[in-house]
């Protein structure tokens, strides 16, 4: 018996009834296609958000002039006080502390909210010019609307969390100048994330959080 005959003997064996189901394959295939589409859409959305935010948001220059950045796909071509971060380690950080909701682009940071290992706390994770970090925060009390979470070292940026009632954030310098910040609402249910990048060396007096009609909701002295 040669090899062909041997395989031939297997082929001539009567096949038992098959359990292969074409409809199930189609359903599973559709699910795979859907997951791939969702993954591609998600990645595209994040990239688009990052690029669009860089192009549209007012960007404070070193000379303290708020400008709309020139539309450009090349981040380095965008005028900015802080060099465009590379967001190195973003994937790793996101894997360790998965976002609970959206990822906000609040220049120069990418921020998101994640579940904290401590009860009744959430993590605010950020990645930017100084690398990445996560720090816990408790729910904002009923009387308050926003809270500072920290200030970046060597970079003039304050950042924090705000309730959804907050529609804008502005920093006020000691000499009375106003520096607009960037706020992304609804990052996680009821939570917005903000950042303010102010002119290097400027003495900051306070942060002002305003509502939908421009009314002042809260001031935080710095």
């Amino acid at each position: 018996m040669d090899a062909k005959q041997m395989f031939g003997s297997l082929a001539t064996q009567e096949q038992p009834p098959t359990t292969v189901d074409v409809n199930r394959a189609m359903a599973a295939g559709r699910a795979v296609r859907g997951r791939r589409r969702a993954a591609v859409a998600g990645t595209t959305a994040v990239i688009t958000a990052v690029v669009a935010a860089g192009m549209v948001h007012p960007w404070v220059r070193k000379d303290d002039v708020a400008v709309s950045a020139t539309p450009s796909v090349t981040p380095s071509a965008t005028p900015s006080a802080t060099p465009w971060p590379t967001y190195e380690g973003f994937a790793e950080r996101k894997k360790q502390t998965p976002p609970k909701g959206k990822i906000a682009y609040v220049p120069p940071l990418l921020m998101w909210v994640s579940d904290a290992p401590v009860k009744n706390q959430l993590f605010l994770c950020e990645i930017g010019p100084n690398g990445s970090s996560c720090s816990g925060f408790r729910p904002i009390p009923a009387k308050e609307f926003a809270r500072t979470q920290g200030k970046l070292r060597r970079v003039d940026v304050w950042f924090g969390v705000a309730k959804d009632a907050v529609h804008a954030v502005t920093a006020v310098t000691r000499d009375g100048r106003k520096v607009p910040g960037v706020l992304t609402r609804g990052v996680s249910p009821g939570i917005g994330l903000w950042s303010v990048e102010y002119p290097p060396g400027a003495a900051m007096r306070s942060l002002v959080f305003t509502g939908a009609k421009g009314e002042t909701l809260q001031r935080i002295a710095l």
Partner: peptide, 19 residues
Amino acid sequence: WHRADDLVQTAITRLYVKW
């Protein structure tokens, strides 16, 4: 034959994805 069915089922699922 059962494993053969499993292989075929997986293959035709991939085929549907790449149809």
